Structure formats: C-alpha cells, structure tokens
Simulated assay, not measured.
Amino acid sequence: MLGLATTFSLTLLAVAPAATAADAQASATATGGLPFQVKPVVTFKSPWAMAFLPDGNVLVTQKEGTMILFDPATGTRRTVSGTPAVSSKGQGALMDIMPAADFASSKLIYFSYSEAAPSADSRVVLATATLDQAGGTLKDPKVIFRGQDASTGGHYSGRIALSPDGKYLFFTSGDRQLFDPAQDPRSTLGKMLRLNLDGTPAAGNPFAARGFHGSVWSYGHRNLLGTAFDRQGRLWEMEMGPRVGDEINLIAPGLNYGWPKASNGNHYDGRDIPDHAPGDGFEAPKVSWNPAISPGGLAYYDADLFPKWKNSLFITGLSGKSLDRIALDGENASKVDHWDMGERIRAVRTGPDGALWLLEDGASGRLLKLTPKR
C-alpha cells in the first residue's frame, strides 16, 4: 500500500515489482487516512517473520523454509543457505528468528520451524546457528528444543523472546489444535516455556515441583503468535482465539490462562466456551477482540520516531487486514488505534531508526516501511 507521498526508489526496482498508476491510486485511496506514510520496499514469497541485525540488514523467514538476508539501504537480497528441512504443510513454516544478544561478536541466531516427525506427525523446533553474512550461510545449526509430536497441522506458535537480562529464552508452544494438552501438566503444548540459552529448562520455573514439564512458565494457551517485553520487563503475549476471542495477555509465572476451559470466543462449530469471569481460577486477557482480527504478529514500540506511540504494542491482523495499537499503562492495556491496511499483515517489527516495518502475508507479501507523515 502506497502512502500519498510514497515513491519507489530506483535501487529497489530490481527486487520489487513496479507499481502501476492504478495500483498507486488504489493504494493512496486505501491509506490516505492513515497517520503514517507507507513505503513498499521489497516483495517476499509467503514471509513469516523478520529480525533486524545490528548493521541494519534484515533476516526474513519464508513459509516454505527459506531464509532471506536483505539490505534495505541497497535493496540487495540473497537466500541464506544451510537452513534445515522444514515441514510447511498446513500452518507449518520456517517461523520466528532472533539474533542473540551478543550477535555482533558471536553471529549466533535463534530460529524456529516445524519439523516432520519420524511418523506422520510433526513438531515445533527451536534451533541455533551461526550466520556467515559474507557467505550467506548458516553454519553449525543445532536443535536446542523439540516440542511434542502431534498429528495436526496447526498451532505450532514458535515465537521467541529473550529476557531483558539476556539469561533466558521464552518460547511459545501452541496447543496443536488438540485443546486438552494446554491444561496437561506433563505436556509442553499450549504453554509459555522459559529455557536456558542452550534450550534446557531454566531453574526456578514455577511448576517444576508440581509434576509439570520443567520448562513450563505459564499454561492454558491456544496459539501464541507474539511475545514482547516492555520497558519495565513485563512479558506481553498475543494469541489467536477460536471463533473470535483473540487476546493480549500479561504473562506472569505460575498462572493458568484458561484455554480450552475459558475463552472470550466460541468453538468454530458454534459450541459455547465459558467466558473468563472473576473467581474462575483463570487469568483473563487484558484485551480481546470480537469480531476477530486473527493476529499474526506483535511488537513493542518505545522508539522516538513516533513519540506519541511510545510504550505501545502493535498487533497485526490477518483476517482483519489491520494494524492495531495497544497503549500500555503499567499492567493495564487498552485498544487505542485500528488501521485498515487493505492486506493480510503477518508481522511487525521496530526498525533501528524507529520506523515500523510490516510484512504482508501471502505469495507476494511486501515489506512495508511506516514513517510519520510530513
């Protein structure tokens, strides 16, 4: 989608299809009321997630299992070799990606993907590798955590967050569309996990002495598709609900978030699920959606380019074709902005200069840069 003042730069014409006059008019009409300029930068094939590296380059994962290294300054891109085999059936994908805190020296990255199991099943995987940027290669890939096998093709989750102190990985493991494992203490499905940097369960996890898997930090989750820490070190999580009921949660250790016993949505076949209610023993979401937006990605914003939006969460909508801003106030959150972006939006990240960057979903998903209107 083009903002009114947006143009393609010549350096990007080789990697992004040129817009026709009709495209420009349609995009300008669609985004004319937005409080930011939208600049299409480059097109990817079914992108899933992105991460900025310290030098400003961007790593983008694509559903079928390829990883792209893209330089926004020059428009150059290359396919990174050495990625593992990915089972991309259903909701499977090469998923999240995150540079290590010491990436500038170690070149280590964390990434997640769906992997075929020895049977007809599949599982979510968390792995590490060293990125050789000059050679465009992943070296020494190593699986550090494998989720449980499941025969379904969805709800892998697979989002990665690094704790503010740099000591722990928080990793999301969806319920794999199996419902009950989210409440099963022995299962890692439907859980927020806290791991050491080598993928082993972190000491001090709240349920370790109560018969739970040692990595579990919180449970009762469905499909956790976004995680982010705020400036005070609080962990926020976004998950896709069933039939409506998409939600934002403030994650705290030892809490049960209710799924599938409580939800602000209903089953897809119309059966009722009890809503969250005071005293039900479950932690209620801070924000939920009805109608659904089918959230795809989440980012915490605290940069200076959009000063009025500091200390906000940004949520992308797939079915909603939207970008939402959620204002944070301590442990409270509230919806404040909802923008129609005209396309399914898969991911959002804050760039080094404070711009917001979005990835559209689909076979020709564009990377969009959002900056203030002049």
Rank of each mutant, 00 (worst) to 15 (best):
R234E: 08
W236G: 06
M238T: 14
M240W: 07
G245P: 05
D246N: 10
D246H: 02
D246G: 00
I248S: 15
I251M: 15
I251P: 14
P253C: 03
P253N: 10
G254C: 11
P260H: 13
P260K: 14
K261D: 10
K261S: 14
N264R: 02
N264V: 00
G265N: 09
N266M: 05
H267W: 14
Y268W: 02
G270H: 05
G270L: 07
R271I: 02
D272P: 00
I273V: 04
D275G: 00
D275S: 11
D275Y: 10
H276T: 14
A277M: 14
P278C: 10
G279Y: 06
G279L: 06
F282A: 12
E283I: 09
A284I: 12
A284E: 10
K286F: 11
V287M: 01
W289R: 08
N290F: 00
P291E: 01
P291I: 05
A292R: 02
A292P: 01
I293P: 12
I293Q: 06
I293S: 09
P295E: 05
P295F: 07
P295A: 10
P295M: 05
P295I: 10
P295K: 04
G297I: 07
G297W: 03
G297S: 11
G297F: 08
G297M: 11
L298M: 15
A299D: 13
A299Q: 14
Y300N: 08
Y301D: 01
Y301Q: 06
L305W: 02
L305S: 05
L305V: 13
P307L: 04
K308V: 00
W309P: 11
K310H: 09
N311M: 07
I315E: 12
I315V: 15
I315D: 09
G317V: 03
L318T: 02
L318H: 01
K321E: 11
K321T: 07
S322A: 12
S322Q: 13
L323A: 08
R325F: 04
I326H: 08
D329A: 14
D329N: 03
D329Y: 06
G330Q: 10
N332L: 05
K335G: 12
V336E: 04
H338Q: 08
G342R: 06
R344K: 14
A347Q: 13
A347G: 03
R349C: 02
R349W: 04
G351K: 01
G351V: 03
D353W: 07
D353M: 12
D353S: 06
A355R: 03
A355P: 09
